[in-house]
Write a protein that binds this DNA or RNA. Structure first.
Length: 819
RNA sequence: GCCAAGGUGGCGGAACUGGCAGACGCGCAGGUCUCAAAAACCUGUGAGGAUAAUACCUCAUGAGGGUUCAAUUCCCUCCCUUGGCACCA
């Protein structure tokens, strides 16, 4: 008698079996058919994994299991991104030292990761806080420094007052800290940066060569933000009143403005400088000095955010100076205004109020002239007096001499060429991307391996002295003076300068967490190699990653940084590829009651409870049945039962089936069709459709009195990626000795997919009016079908008194009569 | 404002290349079993009309238009939802 389906009993049993038999371990050196299936390793920053994490891991695992059964040597490692702010903040919250908390979290996360039944290559797991790992994170820093790609600079940076550290631009989400959601402040500090901007163009261009979810590609394109334009240099003019008349005189001063729209330059009527622009001192006239310095002081006191608040209402003051528009000899007044940002372009813009909304608002406020130089679709040639008339997008040039009549795109090229030739401007490509701010004034991360020597300035720690072990300090909490807590480790701090041997001091900041995760996939195959960051042979064999599945929230964080690191190491000769992930798929989010799961909302679903009640297999299948993997879904308790019922049915069916050696044609067709459908769902990451096909197959088989051996075996194999424990159990119950997960995926053949009777749809004017059951042969013959249709009772009445104007015939599918 | 993804029954979703819209599941209703309930199983289930009838007809994939013999699918305009970016010159 068959046993009851009891996941609580059989899931731990098979997990232990897999572990013992190394079912999911690959021989990294010998594997002949390598496939690196990567999923984003979690950061152990909370009580444990939630259902959303599990969704992502299972989604990737199913793909890995399928590929393994297809004959690939699948390498599917896992690890913990345990260094960094997120884990440290959690340690702060639970009031434990991060070193201790890491051990607790590690245990719990690995426990949960085992529970979900993923086929991980556990022997290659890694933790970013492991000394053997961060030794190489530090090594990467040193390499970048030596290559001139790591440098210090004083800049206005993002400061999180709650995390008490600086953040990279990418870690500021809507002006808030990516970790703790606090409002980010601006601070002027000297910090370590990575020169990612040097790679801006390559990072952009290469996006065309990789197969990634389009939304991720798009957000990287936007983030890199390439724009082509020119920097126009305008000579500064001084004025003198001679009687009633203003007389302009050229000075040796210049003002440079970056613009992407030089075509509109005949319409330029003023120039505006950012309050931070140091050139203001040089050009401001005596009479205006006071007003300008007052305005600057006031503007600089405002935060970035406050400046943005006045979007509509532009403020500013006149500097008393003018500059010359070469094109028409027009003197343009120079203003200072806080809508111009110092870190965009040149910190000064040329105002074309007719064709830029911001310029228009400014011109209105200060009653500056507005010239129309573009006529848009609406053919409006009148004077521009309203914001709605400001044409920014498209149109033809007017009032622009040699550009008149041209399309703006053509005019842009022409003008660029002209101005460059005249020596008034230089071509310039601009990027939105900024250098990656890498220092963090925190404890829980790899100490930046740099030494400050009073004589030699900054010297990298010699590679032979790596790693710099993170010292244990009692009071590890962030202090907030713009200096990391490692400053308290006085003994550790003191060091000899590697260059001159004199007294020197270690850097007290640690590196950004995203540096830890920007190369972990390179380490996975080489985890057990102590002497190198990544082993040449293994790397050649396993990288780049074949398929990466993860969250889209890392579009411009982890996914950009990882690309950058690989680009750099390709150039340094340590890698022979620059793109780490050939394929990337962004999975959807699991939401709850229509909103994102988050602790603050209290709607986080813990998988443990469901695993306990229904088993990991049921939860896996339920999550996947919710919808396509790339779409995500809304977690509801109600569906769980249905899935557990289905697995129970499979269990009973396989264990109690009335087996036969022979297979009917009908059963054979179902078997082949189901295999095809399940496989198609897998390939398209629409596991929901694979499961639906399996349900239909089971419904069909359940009604058969005798079932072929092949059918039973097939259903086990097909369900194996989704419900790995149960599949393993029923597989062994069938007398198999080898793990089902190392057994070959069933094949289907096109010739067995065809039905002998085909239903041909009969349409009249495109509407279905009848269906005919025909043989293969008949259904492929237009004349035969037409004659049968004409005789069909249902159709006859439609044909009465009418002529057939046209017949559309699709072989074996459909006939449409147009009357 | 810009960019991206999406909008299909009561709900999650299916329809792969333009060819039967609603597979599969949840929920709901009725039934079988039971003293009863739960579980399990069976049947039905887009809306409306019509019928003795499970025959049949009409309408339906966010809205409107177009291309086509035929549109959830392709094109145009608009609306809404979600996510990303944003005074980027």
């Amino acid at each position: 008698m068959a046993k009851l389906y009891s996941p609580a009993f059989l899931e731990p049993k098979w997990q232990a079996y897999w572990q013992k038999n190394k079912t999911y371990e690959v021989d990294l050196l010998e594997a002949s058919n390598p496939y690196f299936n990567l999923m984003m390793f979690p950061y152990p920053s909370a009580e444990g994994l939630h259902v959303g994490n599990m969704y992502a891991f299972v989604g990737s695992d199913i793909w890995g299991r399928y590929m393994r059964m297809k004959g690939w040597d699948v390498f599917q490692p896992i690890g913990l991104d345990g260094f960094g702010i997120h884990s440290e903040n959690y340690a702060l919250k639970v009031k434990k030292h991060p070193l201790e908390q890491a051990k607790t979290s590690e245990k719990n996360f690995y426990r949960q990761l085992s529970l979900i039944g993923n086929g991980f290559s556990w022997e290659n797991r890694l933790e970013t806080y492991d000394l053997d790992y961060y030794k190489w994170t530090q090594w990467i820093f040193v390499k970048l420094f030596k290559a001139g790609l790591a440098y210090r600079k004083k800049a206005s940076v993002n400061w999180c007052p709650s995390c008490k550290t600086v953040l990279a631009d990418e870690q500021v989400i809507k002006e808030r800290c990516e970790r703790c959601d606090s409002k980010v402040l601006e601070k002027s500090l000297e910090q370590w940066f990575f020169k990612i901007t040097k790679y801006a163009d390559k990072l952009l261009e290469n996006l065309k060569t990789i197969d990634w979810s389009s939304k991720v590609v798009k957000s990287q394109v936007n983030w890199i933000g390439k724009s082509r334009g020119i920097i126009i240099t305008y000579p500064v003019l001084t004025t003198k009143l001679v009687g009633e008349k203003k007389v302009f005189n050229k000075t040796s001063q210049n003002i440079s403005c970056f613009t992407t729209r030089p075509d509109t330059n005949f319409g330029a009527t003023f120039v505006v400088m950012a309050p931070e622009n140091f050139k203001l001192d040089q050009i401001t006239s005596k009479e205006c000095k006071k007003a300008v310095s007052n305005y600057r002081a006031q503007a600089l006191r405002k935060s970035k955010e406050e400046r943005k608040l006045d979007k509509q209402d532009k403020t500013g003051v006149f500097t008393g100076a003018y500059c010359l528009n070469h094109l028409n000899g027009r003197p343009m007044p120079i203003y200072v205004s806080d809508f111009v940002l110092m870190d965009v372009g040149t910190g000064a813009v040329v105002g074309v109020p007719g064709h830029d909304l911001r310029d228009f608002q400014f011109a209105k406020k200060f009653s500056l002239p507005i010239i129309r130089v573009v006529v848009g679709k609406d053919k409006d040639k009148s004077k521009i007096t309203k914001a709605s008339q400001v044409q920014e997008e498209e149109g033809q040039m007017i009032n622009s001499e040699f550009l008149n009549g041209m399309d703006i795109r053509k005019a842009k090229d022409k003008m660029m060429e002209y101005m460059v030739k005249k020596g008034w401007a230089k071509r310039k490509t601009q990027y939105h991307l900024r250098d990656w701010l890498i220092s963090r004034q925190r404890y829980w991360g790899p100490p930046i391996p740099m030494i400050k020597c009073p004589k030699c300035s900054w010297v990298p720690v010699p590679e032979k002295d790596l790693p710099i072990k993170l010292p244990y300090i009692k009071d590890w909490r962030p202090k907030g003076e713009g200096r990391g807590p490692l400053y308290e480790a006085k003994d550790w701090l003191k060091v000899k300068c590697p260059s001159c041997g004199g007294k020197a001091q270690r850097e007290t900041d640690v590196s950004d967490t995203f540096l830890d995760s920007s190369w972990y996939f390179l380490r996975y195959p080489s985890v057990n190699k102590k002497k190198v960051s990544w082993d040449k042979t293994l790397t050649k064999k396993w990288l780049p990653v074949n398929r990466y599945i993860g969250g889209a929230e890392h579009s411009v964080l982890h996914l950009l940084y990882s690309r950058f690191i690989c680009h750099v190491f390709k150039d340094l000769g340590f890698l022979d590829f620059s793109e780490p992930f050939l394929e990337f798929r962004a999975h959807g989010l699991i939401i709850k009651d229509g909103v994102k799961m988050s602790k603050s909302k209290g709607n986080v679903v813990n998988p443990d409870k469901y695993i306990k009640e229904y088993g990991a297999d049921s939860l896996r299948c339920y999550l996947m049945f919710l919808g396509p993997l790339l779409k995500g879904g809304d977690f509801r308790d109600t569906g769980m039962k249905g899935m557990s019922k289905f697995l129970g049915k499979v269990w009973i069916f396989v264990n109690q089936a009335n087996l036969t050696d022979k297979e009917s044609e009908l059963q054979r067709r179902w078997r082949h069709q189901t295999t095809k459908r399940v496989e198609s769902g897998l390939k398209r990451l629409k596991y929901n459709t694979s499961l639906a096909a399996l349900m239909e197959y089971l419904n069909f088989l359940s009604k058969e009195t005798k079932v072929s051996q092949l059918a039973v075996r097939t259903i086990c194999l097909l369900i194996a990626p989704f419900a790995p424990h149960m599949a393993e159990e029923i597989w062994h119950n069938l007398g198999e000795a080898k793990s089902i997960h190392q057994s070959p995926w069933p094949k289907y053949e096109e010739k067995y997919l065809k039905e002998d009777k085909i239903e041909v749809v009969v349409q009249i004017n495109g509407k279905v009016r009848d269906r005919l059951e025909l043989s293969q042969e008949q259904a492929g013959n237009e004349e035969k079908v037409l004659s049968l249709v004409k005789e069909a009772d249902k159709i006859k009445s439609y044909l009465k008194d009418k002529k057939i104007k046209k017949v559309v015939f699709i072989k074996g599918k459909l006939i449409n009569l147009v009357l």
